[in-house]
Nucleic acid binder design. Sequence first.
DNA 1: TAAGGCAAACTTTTT
DNA 2: GTTTGCCTTA
Length: 793
Amino acid sequence: MSDFNSDLPLSARAMAARPAPYLDGLNPAQRQAVDTLDGPVLMLAGAGTGKTKALTARIAHLLNSGRAYPSGILAVTFTNKAAREMKLRVGGYLGEAVEGMPWLGTFHSISAKLLRRHAELVGLKSNFTILDSDDQLRLLKQLLVAANIDDKRWPARLLASIIDQWKNRAWRPDQVPSSEASAFNNRGTEFYAAYQDRLKTLNACDFGDLLLHCVTIFQAHPDVLQSYQQRFRYILVDEYQDTNVAQYLWLRLLAEGHKNICCVGDDDQSIYGWRGAEVGNILRFERDFPGAVVVRLEQNYRSTPHILAAASQVIAGNEDRLGKTLWTEARAGEKVRLIGHWDGEEEARWIGEQVEDLSQGTRGLNPFSLNQMAILVRASHQMRAFEDRFLTIGMPYRVIGGPRFYERMEIRDAMAYFRLAVSPGDDLAFERIVNTPKRGLGDKAQQTIQRIARANAVPLVQGAALAIEAGEIKGRGAAQLRALIENIARWHSAVGTTGMVEAEDDLVEVIRPEGDAQNHIELAEQILEESGYTEMWLNDKTPEGPGRLENLKELIKALESFENLQGFLEHISLIMENDSDDTEAKVSIMTLHGSKGLEFPVVFLPGWEDGLFPSQRSMDESGLKGLEEERRLAYVGITRAEQLCTISFAANRRVYGQWQSQMPSRFVDELPAAHVEVLTPPGLYGGGIAPVASTIEERAQRADVYNSPGWRRLQTATERPVSQPREARNMVIDGTSAPAFEVGARVFHQKFGYGRVTLVEGDKLFIEFEKSGPRHVVAKFIVPAEQADDVPF
DNA sequence: TAAGGCAAACTTTTT
DNA sequence: GTTTGCCTTA
């Protein structure tokens, strides 16, 4: 069935006659974004300004006005989740009439679809396999081993990331500029070329290739490009600020003819620079597409004014931005709350209590469901403290974006078996599972197979068969290998004749109904049984064993929504998600990156400490650019909150097993005091930590967060422009706080023990600890040694 | 060849 | 503190 038949045009005239429902409830800016159908449009959509609404209304408008068929609209998103949501919402506008848009999807899935049609133009066959980063890494490792490279000094991971970056910039091996020649010990380009060759022989491509090959085809075959330019009359792009150079070229080439391209994005939410995203793409849109209409969506429907003000003030610290002013009609609500804690565990404990309280409505607010609350962290390792805490108090939680389902070892192993069943020539899959479960085929046997396969220019399975014939593999291993080879052959024939077929109209991919081939679900189960894979985990005595079996069951269940194994494998390589359908209300724990596009009534933002957030690494690697990206991350975090936003930091944190004292994040300084309420941790600092506090008031004052460096900096910061250099602000602070300790004083720190002060810098003390060596520590957490015994811990 | 023990490296974020 | 990978031994 072609999509021309399935998506019969809705009558344009009929639509024009009655008021278009999708235009209802749009504000003027949204309205403009929806109405300006022709020519380039840049929709600058701040957080929570109804961007998806405008985007879907625009699609609906294109369809209903009769300007485009569903198949004539190219709508690109970054994530499958976003694609799914848009599909759903467009469907909502148009009802059953439109069966769906064939070209609504992620960059990668659409590219894969295009590439399957024109694979031969880049030397691939249309049934190429898509490798994930794991496969990619193994391949590179092989190359490096073959070239006798010391993996210690020049790890495959490094090469992988170099190649990725190059692909993100749309450089093919011969296009890598000479400025990069020194990469990977001067051999980067050489290995890049070798890797691409290897991929071609394997009839495979990685994620970056999906885009890059498309660009190559478009550039080298104007006829192909032109046919798609004509097909895609209207182009929409979501999250434009996240596009990399390859994606940018991809879009530009396709839009070149009619220039009906609408890009939606928010430069303030560009948080994927490390992955090759170029904020520059959105910043220079107007130059790329002269005459572009720029629409700013600035009315925020999500957050209260306090939250919005806090977010705006923070992001104002960035230089490179197009600038937007978010506003809202919502009533004031609660201020953003700020709280400092002793350490990470205390922070987790406190948040746990807050979640508990909020879920019961103890705070005088209506109770929130756990589903309405989220904890957003900078780095995934921060999640553990919360998991630990929530487990002990029995708080239901859900970790979003952890290790993904399809990246788990057992799932990938099982998939490798499926891949072999579908295409026995899949060498990567074969390598992965020859000896899983153990079949007595170690390195030596595998090398023999490789050698023989290469000598005869056949896939590994055949090479293995030849190796047995030639008697090069003997004994126990040989018998098991023979069984494996026979199994693969049998599974392959059981897979049957189903497959993807090109219809006459090259627009459609049709899956031929299964013939007498075996039910693919049973087959999958059978494969896992006969290979001994299930048994392997049954006999496994590690605590993970049962979980892995559970996951395998899940995998089999996932097969149900596909017609056959091929279809499953095709989709799974691109859809790496794991949405377990649980009905129980749970608090969400996720990274800030993972939270983009989501919103929650209650948001906790823990770990606002310099080095952790902003992350030291991104500042080291990318300097000011890195810091600005971190700041955008802070902006994203705050703007996830609808009603209640709580930022926290801890003075001490364990970083790979070592206690470290932490400084509050510089972003804490940048919060506007007028919109922030500083909370005092109950009873935490009340007990005489402060060295020279004698009166009760003094103690109380010293005890709370008002006295913390972060808070003082916060107050100083709000008195002067945020753009003022950090150094200058620190000088002011240094002047205001007299050091309470002198160099040479013997002191005590609760985590680090006894030490001697070697240097005083305002609030920061450098201390030579007797046990843990030199560190810099905030004065607040230091007690003169003679008082150490009084400290109530 | 496989399993177990020990050292080292490591922690950003992921389509 | 954890994981990974290398090395030793059965």
